[in-house]
Design a binder for these strands. Structure first.
Lengths: 337, 337
DNA sequence: CCGGCGGGCTGCAACGTTGTAATGCACGCG
DNA sequence: CGCGTGCATTACAACGTTGCAGCCCGCCGG
């Protein structure tokens, strides 16, 4: 069907390799030959066969992106940014979903044969832990996102979780709040976004001499809106007193805010709300939600850049690179006053 | 680096082709040989090279998915569903973003060399129109989503836009509303989701003998939350009287609802709101948003099924198939009463 | 005892590309 | 006039796989 180098060569009356040279803009070609070959290429509508090229060169121009689920806005927006960053480097993205924190699926993904057509992988685990770090010693270029796994042998792009959560908490404190609830803690977790952000929260409290009250900590399973809603309801039902809520991500904060409003609390007068992630959606809630912008585009661009570097260098250097993106506090109506 | 058939063959003391046969579970192989080869495969950790296989067979096991942008929840949820549907059929998805309705980018996408590593494409255009239908006569399997282009030579999966919009409008009428505003119309559009849904709205009105009032039609550019918010603000400022709002998609409805609430209108008492798309998010707004569930999983599954069919049949039959998914009216707080 | 059949396996070619080495040729210099 | 140099082009092999034709051998029926 499709024209090949051979067809073009036959039509132009040159060798296959000469056509290949023309396609690659090799410099030592007579203008006359070049013109002739170009004409043949146009006439036949020749397009190089990428599969064959990949087989020869070992490169596909495709990178894998594995993340939990696109229906979570955070990951959808992250995927958007990564696809754009990849496109700037002339790469396409093969997208895999690992589900909401299924450790076994995540591990299986790492050795999936589907990755064969990929030059490398950007991986955002949710179910794996630091104990699984050595599993990341795969034989291909890999860049890690998020904060589930530390001390692994691969490059890692993440954010200043502790610092940013501290800044978020400080922001609430600066507005005069003292009884700041947290929604989204994970029982017993030591690393991971939840643990790190909680740590930032505690540091901000102690810095201001505010005692830590475990009754203000709302535990959840996942980080969906629904989980935030349930945790908020439980906290309200428990009768504990609070004047601000820090959702460890935006979805939790939005879910919690909705429940608080239904319960008759005014935002921000009675309770201030603060999220984390900088989702587009936070600009449109009622009231608009203050949040932490974790530098999504920077994270996406860096992840792709590091992956490309690994792909080109070939060998994993002894010291993996860890990159922390800059964050910004976004002040909106939910913390006005 | 990686083991090839040749290495396995050498280790097992058989020919390359025998190893290939074992890998493919060819039936005429002596158990002893099979065992020996299996052992060699395990020992070397052999994984077939998909690129080479693709070159030989012409199939990659990858399908392309081209849609406007993942940061729009509708497309993120659609992509999620399509990836899952593809996985069920052992296919992976290569995801491309065409931007928010850029016709030229969409057309360029159709002949992008990146599609070379793809067996076919599921394409959701936003900027193309029925005039561009013949451009869809590409040389590879293609399935179309959405309602921008009709009369094209390819399979088309979409929803009952007119019927569903009529049902949505009827739902508001059944709640006693008569002054039903629409947010999201596209000036001068004849096909496309906006035009079809508007048509359904008008049919429902005339069916109930309610006069059509152009002042109740809010025009927008894109279908983002922000556009819904702006159109609502303009309508309120215009002083026109309304007791319900039908957002032609959920994002518009949510943006509009927020503005209405800020303006002091009570939902659903003063104004009822109805969306369209069945986004997850509509379950968590305040109040929760009534919407039309257009059968996303069904659409995703059908699109993948049709594409696989085209890939396997090879030739495009003279009559392209058009599939319309079932819809459901989802009644929530925003239309309670 | 011979011919035919089919199971089990092998060798070769091909998919379309690109790197390497080699070829022919013209030109300039001693 | 002969030789080296550098340009323009070519032939060939290889990437790893799979389809096809063919090989050998044992068994069965005549």
């Amino acid at each position: 069907m499709a024209a090949t180098l051979r067809d073009v060569a036959a039509l132009a009356g040159v060798s296959i390799k000469t056509v290949s040279n023309v396609v690659h803009d090799f410099e030592h070609i007579r203008p006359a030959t070049r013109t002739k070959v170009r004409a043949a290429i146009d006439e036949l509508g020749y397009k190089p066969n990428i599969t064959a090229r990949s087989l020869r060169s070992g490169r596909t121009g495709v990178i894998g992106l594995a993340l939990p689920e696109l229906s979570l806005s955070y990951f959808a927006e992250l995927a958007d940014a990564i696809i754009q960053a990849a496109e700037r480097r002339h790469l396409v993205v093969l997208l895999e979903q690992t589900g909401g924190g299924d450790r076994d699926r995540e591990i299986a993904m790492l050795s999936s044969p589907r990755l064969q057509l990929t030059d490398g992988l950007i991986f955002s685990p949710l179910g794996m832990s630091t104990d699984d770090a050595e599993l990341l010693n795969v034989g291909y270029p890999l860049v890690l996102l998020g904060e589930r796994v530390f001390g692994s042998p691969v490059d890692h792009v993440t954010m200043h979780n502790v610092e940013a959560a501290k800044a978020a908490t400080r922001h609430l404190i600066s507005r005069g709040r003292r009884r700041i609830a947290v929604i989204g803690a994970h029982e017993g977790e030591l690393v991971g976004s939840a643990a790190l952000r909680l740590q930032g929260y505690r540091e901000a409290l102690s810095e201001s001499g505010i005692p830590f009250d475990p009754a203000l900590i709302g535990h959840v399973g996942l980080w969906h809106r629904l989980d935030g809603a349930e945790a908020m309801r439980a906290m309200i039902d428990s009768g504990v007193n609070f004047d601000a809520v820090f959702g460890l991500n935006d979805a939790l904060a939005l879910g919690a805010m909705r429940v608080a409003q239904v319960a008759g609390l005014r935002v921000p007068e009675d309770v201030m709300f603060m999220g984390f992630d900088g989702l587009d959606e936070t600009q449109y809630s009622l009231p608009t939600l203050s949040t932490i912008d974790p530098g999504r585009d920077e994270i996406a661009d860096t992840a792709v850049r590091l992956l490309v570097q690994r792909i080109e260098e070939g060998v994993t250097p002894p010291v993996p690179e860890v990159y922390l993106a800059d964050y910004t506090v976004v002040d909106r109506e939910s913390t006005a006053g």
